[in-house]
Amino acid sequence: MSVSTCPSRPDPDGDVPERDARGLDAADRAIVLATQAGLPLVPDPWGAVGREVGMSGEAVLERMRAMQERGVIRRVAAVPNHYRLGYVANGMTVWDVDDAQIDRLGREVAAIEGVSHCYRRPRHLPHWPYNLFAMLHGCSREEVERQAAVLRERLGEACRDHRILYSSRILKKTGLRLARRVPQE
């Protein structure tokens, strides 16, 4: 798993230990540094991180939740490497869907097995008419095309056009990274 972080927001109470420019006190910073490359894949990842930073697993989890509430950490989520799992055909399907039906259809498409991401995006006419995006993963392009055919059927008459944009390379998936040392002010 990985820890994805985003810029901090000020604490509303002001009742916090001294924090750096990112809103982190020394203990929070130690936790982020220990987890920014991913949580350990062990039965008790919070306990493992706690041992590394000198606190209990419960305290680590409590601080992670507090950082998430403050907006320092956006989310904790699994970040799979689809290629290593055998899914070497990854296609972003883009759809030109009737705007009046896109909310309902987007929810339906998002619920289809095999769709890992589904979202609405603005059109950029006349060159880009697509407003619904759905990421599909398969072991072959033929598998992705079969999945896209299921989506096409689900969209029905509301769909005017679509394309499949296949991945050509893997992009590094990481969140914010902190330097190991705090620069002197």
Rank of each mutant, 00 (worst) to 15 (best):
Y83D: 09
V32Y: 00
D99V: 11
L178V: 10
R141Y: 08
R51N: 15
P17T: 05
R146Q: 13
E52C: 09
D28K: 01
G86R: 07
R121T: 15
Q147L: 15
E108S: 11
P80H: 07
R180A: 13
G57H: 05
D20M: 13
P7G: 12
D25P: 00
E113A: 15
D44K: 14
Q147F: 12
G114I: 14
S56F: 06
R22G: 14
S116Q: 05
L33M: 03
Q68T: 14
Q101F: 05
M92C: 06
Y83W: 10
E153Y: 06
R107F: 08
T35H: 03
G114Q: 08
R29A: 14
C139H: 13
V150G: 02
V150P: 04
V97R: 00
A100T: 11
Q101W: 08
Y166G: 00
I164T: 10
L41T: 11
C6M: 13
P17Q: 01
P12K: 04
M55G: 03
R74H: 11
V76Q: 02
L132V: 03
Q184D: 08
A110V: 04
P126S: 09
V144H: 00
Y87V: 07
H124A: 15
P80L: 03
V182W: 08
C6A: 10
Y130T: 07
L176R: 05
P17N: 03
L136N: 05
A66D: 12
Q147T: 10
A34E: 04
D99Q: 08
M92F: 04
Y119K: 15
G138D: 02
V42C: 12
S140I: 06
P43M: 10
P40F: 08
D98A: 13
Q36L: 03
R163A: 13
D11L: 10
A78M: 08
E153C: 05
E108I: 09
P122E: 00
H124I: 14
V42A: 06
V16D: 11
E18N: 09
M67G: 07
L155A: 00
E153L: 08
V109E: 01
C159V: 07
S167D: 07
P12L: 07
E153T: 15
R123T: 13
V79K: 01
G71A: 06
L165A: 12
M64V: 15
